[in-house]
Amino acid sequence: MRWTHWINFPILAIMIWSGMLIYWANDVYTVTIFGHTFVQFFPDWFYKLLHIPHRLAEGMAYHFLFMWFFTLNGFFYILYTIFSGEWRELVPQKKSFKEAWLVLLHDLHIRKTIPPQNKYNAAQRIAYTAIIVMGLGSLVTGLAIYKPVQFYWLTWICGGYHLARILHFGLTLGYVLFFVIHVVQVILAGWNNFRPVISGFEVVEIPPPIMVEMAAEVQNTSTMEVADEEKNTLTNQDDIADQARDDQINPSNNMQ
């Protein structure tokens, strides 16, 4: 998961950038309601800031190179998720849609409690699955506008060449929105939540319930934070978990 996540980040950034180099050549999309244009993609100052204009050929060359990496990376991610069984943590369940609303209320500080969860909460399940579906959507709409004659059936599924280009553009806006919310959430969740995305394991401190003195000595290191009071074992995501647990000098465990 971590590998594809971090590989995807620069690839998607390059795809969006090169996509803008292409879009500039025919930048016709606006948000217009009742004849009033609210948003025009994109204003001149924005193009100038990012040195977008007059780079169509270059943009296409980058786009059609990195599309391979984007596709392969997504493919590996989906395969990994299926074979590792991780999809069970990710795919929304029946209750997720109802619960996601409660999670949202909680995150907005409207509700105090949050529904019980495993690795990901209901809102995360929906968001992280949606982003994969969106990735697939970008691939399909992309192919539909890239080879509309050879893949005429894809273009047909996407509602024609015009709509496919709009969907392709819209999905990109979706990524940007996802990115903003994602980064804000990651910052709010803190370092101990972020670190595992790089290192692959999570450190959960055990509040020592009975044998206070010894336990405190062992576990009171500066980098650790109290992450989850309900859990009272050292739980790791990777294989280190079991070893670590075996090696752990944990008086409370030993006592049991």
């Binding site: 971090w6 790089i198 290192s199 394991f201 062992v218 980098t223 070893q243 670590a244 090696d247």
Partner: peptide, 21 residues
Amino acid sequence: TVEQRIKRRNFLSFTTFFLLG
């Protein structure tokens, strides 16, 4: 100890992360 293992593992991961980055 567990802390050493955690530190070592963190160090390795972050080094790899920044090297690959």
